[in-house]
Every structure is written in C-alpha cells, then in structure tokens.
Amino acid sequence: MPMRPHAIALSVLESQYRVDQFNAAYGDCLDRGAYDSWIAMFTEDCLYKVVPRENHDAGLPLCTMALEGQGMLKDRVYGITNTLFHAPYYQRHVIGGARILSDNGITIEATANYSVFRTKPGSVSEVYNVGRYLDRFVYGDQGLLLQERLCVFDSELILNSLIYPI
C-alpha cells in the first residue's frame, strides 16, 4: 500500500502543465496578432480546423476554416494581413484548463474549453466564439507542437465574419 494512495503521478501534472502553458501562449499569440508565431506552434503537416458543432456532431465534414499543413496556415495569414477586407477587431482568448486524454511520451491528446471575445475599435466587447479545442500535440525539440487542433464551436451564428484564427 503506497503512502499516499490518491497522489497524482508527477508525469500527469507535467503534461497538464505543458498543455496549459502552451494554450496560454497560443491565445497570447493570436490576441497580439503575432501570426508568424502562431504558425510556428504547429507541425509542418498539421491540421487546423474551425468547425461548427452542428457539423461535427452530425459527422459532416464541412468546416468554417480548414487548413492542412503550414503552407495553408501561411496562406491564411497572408489573407488576414493582405487580402481580406474587414473591419479590424481585437480578440481576447480565455482558455480553460486542459483535460489530458492521453500522453504516451510522443503525443498528447487533450481538450480545453475556450471563449473568444471580440472588441471592434470604438465599440463594446462581445462574446464572439465559444467552443472547445480537440488537440493532438507532439513533443518537439523546443517543446510541444500542435499536430492537430479542431476548434469545435457552439456559437450557431457567427457574428458576420471570422477573419482571424481561433
């Protein structure tokens, strides 16, 4: 009988800590508009999707944004910064504590709830997009990288447009 039967293994705490730190940095990148840093948080062959919960639950493949690989992420960032005509807005991510589903030392599977608030210049803040991340991380040399992030959002109606990543 161990001395502390309900003790949490240190390795579990460690993956929890890593993912929470990662998510904090991720939200910070997007909220600052540091899109190159955002791209660098993904693997070369990543998958990034923003998908209505309605489609996700029904097993339908259509996304609001579906990017495969860092090349497409770069194309999106070029769109944001150079081609998409839109009213600018601030984003503020509030990301809840991650739930670690598995960690085999190579990949971590995890989920976390998020809410994103939008503030347009001269206007009030609005609840913009609410959902959860479904993630697969891989351990890289410099820390975790996202191999897959699905942003499954509850918000049935997008407030006009969704320009920046979530």
Binding site: C63, L84, A87, I158, N160
Partner: peptide, 24 residues
C-alpha cells in the same frame, strides 16, 4: 470541394469580404 470551401462562408477568403462590406 471541401478545400475550395475555404474561399466561401463566414471565414472565406472571398466571401468574408462580402458580409463585411454589407455591414458597412
């Protein structure tokens, strides 16, 4: 068809512009 859907809808490379311009 799904990849090209990135041009359309509320986040589309093309269609997001239209919703914005209608608002303005």
């Amino acid at each position: 068809r799904l990849r090209q859907a990135n041009l359309f809808g509320p986040a589309g490379f093309v269609s997001a512009d239209d919703g914005e311009v209608i608002e303005f």
